[in-house]
Nucleic acid binder design. Sequence first.
DNA 1: GCGATCGTCAACCGTTCGGTTGAATATGGG
DNA 2: CCCATATTCAACCGAACGGTTGACGATCGC
Lengths: 126, 126
Amino acid sequence: MESQLDTVFAALADPTRRAILAMLLEDDMAVTDVAEPFEMSLAAISKHLVILTRAGLISQEKRGRVKWCKLEPDALRDASVWMQGFGQFEPVNLDAFERFLEAELAELAPDGAPPRCSVPASGGSD
Amino acid sequence: MESQLDTVFAALADPTRRAILAMLLEDDMAVTDVAEPFEMSLAAISKHLVILTRAGLISQEKRGRVKWCKLEPDALRDASVWMQGFGQFEPVNLDAFERFLEAELAELAPDGAPPRCSVPASGGSD
DNA sequence: GCGATCGTCAACCGTTCGGTTGAATATGGG
DNA sequence: CCCATATTCAACCGAACGGTTGACGATCGC
């Protein structure tokens, strides 16, 4: 009885999970590698990944003994559509998106250990 | 130390709160009127409105003894921008948005007591 | 001023969340 | 086969959530 919108927004409400999504935007990653830049336990990250998977935001495929995590942007489209309806239908500003990602990623690497994911190219020259 | 994105997405993760936003898309409303279509107590709705206010999604202005609630779509823009970055930058489908709202509102009026808020015109034949 | 209305506050309740730890379960390599 | 690696499971914890009820402070109308 729980809508997809519920689980997607709930998943996005956590900064750790948003950071994970941003990392996966760069490339598919193994669970251990996802966990590396964070200061919490591997089990905690594993739980976050379960939540993201249940929300449909990522998928996980086990190959050998490592489980690969892959971003699934489709799940975001519904939620995005919902939100756009309230935003006066304005076009989004991609520059603002880049700044968001940078700020969020900077926040979770306070000890000078930046995750090796920068910001998506977002089309580059636009 | 809690980002605006945190509070906005957390606020959106609850179907009651999303329904309230959809209602306010139609018109400003008093707290009692907001609560009317729901089956929970007025105090519960009041709490939801506090959460929406703290997230910046609505504003409340007290005039006389009634407190008016007003949608503040600006707060959604940031979150929307963030999400769009994952959606392969595809244009959103506004028809889909209308269907979403209809479905969500229908869900919370199971006893045949539809809230008197339909769906936003979304630029159509208003 | 009195009573009804509007809305919040405070205390409480059960559930979920985000995290920990330690054990368990694959799986791959020498 | 044995051990290291990769990941999850299970139990636990404190805090936050979503809801209730009852009391309370404003404010309006008469």
